[in-house]
Simulated assay, not measured.
Amino acid sequence: MNLRRLLLPFSGLYWIGTSVRNMLYNIGMMRTTSFNIPIINVGNLSVGGTGKSPHIMYLIDLLKNEKLVSSLSRGYGRKTKGFLIANYSTKVYDIGDEPLQFFQRFKNRVLIAVCEDRVFGAKKLIDHYNAETILLDDAYQHRSIKAGFNILLTDYNNPYYKDYLLPAGDLRESSSGVKRANIIIVTKCPDRISEEKHKEISKKIKLKSHQQLFFSKIVYDNKIIGKLDTIEKSTWKNYNVILVTGIAKTDGLVKFAEENFANVLHLEYPDHHNFSQTEIEYIYKRYEDTEGRKRFDKIVLTTEKDYMRLMEESMIKDDLYYIPISIEINDKEKFNQTILEYVGQN
């Protein structure tokens, strides 16, 4: 028995609170601010683990040649406050791991901003930086800012319609919130999904007339990247790996690593984890204890997001690598056209 189900009475109280809040927004008693540029919100109903970052990066890549694109998040885990724009001297504690990941991937081709007040942040991006499109990262419940287009993500292995409200489950609001979405993406899908499974999921989601449903899967790169070099997939079987993760859901990555490297020792930490010096020393000790004939037959492997927090740790930085990921979306042309039409018409 899942012991969290004992908390269902408290989920009832949580439902009352979130439902009243949503109702007040729906009837206009709580203020929503709109802007005259395209704003796309990418979020979910649950607490983390649906793959927002690669979907944001997909959208940046799609739109970066169309408009001056910006991403705006609160900058989870940062040690600063207020509005900040990423630049070449920005550190992970300035803006958080995911925004820094976006900046490292796209550099100055886009604006990467953080601000806990999304309305203030959007105004700054538009008035001072001439942003032409804003991607709101994880702001589905931040209804004080009016997005013109909402993309809702839900995990194939734990869809929102099988989950419970906090604290008995992982939902931030009830499943009725799905109606605000223009596009729903079922993420982290297996390589192949039968037509019957497609229909089953579509039936359970109960799409409204204004909604479209897509499916995406994680695609791991054919190389891993470190400070000193890159290592091609063709040689991965020669490496013993200390896999260090600080993400919400690790099953897919662990399975991929075990299939592609010689041996894998997984050191798992909480999502957005800030590593202490003691933990860095422990990681290094496990690396030193790992069998290897020479320097490059053993490595420390991590995610691109975790690399943002680990890349300056002197004990491991020369032996640290990350594996880039991207997404593939079924009916990619239709998805791209829908997004480009919205941005082009607003």
Rank of each mutant, 00 (worst) to 15 (best):
H266V: 08
F215L: 06
D61C: 06
Y282V: 02
K298R: 12
P270S: 06
I126V: 12
M1G: 14
V300C: 03
L171E: 07
T32P: 09
V92W: 09
D251V: 12
I201D: 06
V110Q: 08
I40V: 13
K206V: 11
P270W: 03
L320P: 01
L213Y: 11
E98V: 09
I323K: 01
E313Q: 13
T33P: 00
L340C: 11
K79W: 08
P190S: 11
K81Y: 03
T187N: 14
T338D: 13
E328S: 15
D117I: 09
L111H: 03
W236Y: 13
L340R: 14
E132S: 04
N41C: 15
E98P: 07
D138K: 06
Q277P: 04
N65A: 08
T290I: 04
L13C: 08
L13E: 01
N263R: 13
A147Y: 06
Q141S: 11
E258A: 04
Y93F: 12
M315F: 13
K298C: 07
E200C: 10
V110L: 10
S314L: 08
G12L: 13
K179W: 00
K217V: 14
R4Q: 02
N65V: 01
E313Y: 03
V92S: 06
A257Y: 09
P9H: 02
D318R: 07
K233Q: 14
I327T: 05
M315K: 15
L100V: 12
E259R: 13
K255V: 02
A86F: 05
R143M: 06
D94W: 03
Y307T: 00
E268C: 09
N274P: 09
G344Q: 14
E232P: 11
L228K: 15
S46Y: 03
Q337Y: 07
Y287V: 04
K285M: 06
H198I: 15
T245P: 03
K233A: 13
K162M: 13
K317G: 03
E195T: 14
L111Y: 08
P190R: 08
E196H: 15
Y58H: 15
G49E: 01
V20L: 09
K285V: 01
W15H: 03
S234E: 15
L45G: 02
Q212I: 12
G121M: 07
L111T: 02
